[in-house]
Design a protein around this nucleic acid. Structure first.
Lengths: 103, 103
DNA sequence: CCTGGTGGTCATAAATTTCTGACTTATTGC
DNA sequence: GCAATAAGTCAGAAATTTATGACCACCAGG
């Protein structure tokens, strides 16, 4: 249980960036919903009260970029898109559960 | 490895609040330094380039409130204060290390 | 007595994030 | 043809976070 790995390059905190990616007003909530079932843009808008298109759109993009969600075109004709949790995303679940037990 | 615990009360994400407490521009960096050694206010100001009194002061208060740091008066006469990592804080280290391996 | 360090607070300014409302392209149902 | 849904984008406003500079009280050294 060394803490050396936490102290890589002088002056920069690796966790700082990670947390930044995971924070943002709606990202944790989006992530949680994605753990339960695939997401659709319009569905999120209805499920997450107080949220808005703009921010959700950005959050989905960012979660995709980190590799936690994957954008899947189910049908292009009557446009149907779904956001699926990736392997990486599933790997994050136990970490979050552990976080809850500590704090 | 159920995800039920992540889905407590409808509409609220437990992790959302936790991440909010851990995020903030300098909190992760402060935490990391605290893992290495006890902190002093003026020391932080020198170590963390680009930070400022106000924000550090607030961050320390918040980290104290969550219970990750403890404010210790070493000497009152020539005022000497230190912020020590708590048990809870130490418990967080492996979680952060796990986070790094995933993302 | 003057300068410098420690440990802050306070009001305000600047920067960043989030929200609002309008608008887009394409498809289905009536 | 008209309205509705899906999945967004865009510009600008509002809210939240972070930074700046001034200021306080206390102690120590020269």
């Amino acid at each position: 249980m060394t803490t050396r790995n936490l102290t890589q390059d002088a002056g920069t905190c690796p966790v700082q960036g990670l947390l930044k990616l995971l924070s943002g007003k709606w990202k944790p909530e989006i992530f949680r919903l994605a753990v339960e079932a695939p997401l659709r843009f319009s569905g999120l808008l209805r499920q997450i009260h107080g949220s808005n298109r703009q921010t959700l759109s950005l959050a989905l993009k960012e979660l995709e970029e980190i590799g936690l969600l994957e954008k899947v075109v189910i049908k292009p004709k009557p446009l149907h898109i779904e956001y699926h949790l990736t392997e990486k995303g599933r790997a994050l679940v136990p970490v979050f559960l552990q976080l809850e037990t500590i704090l």
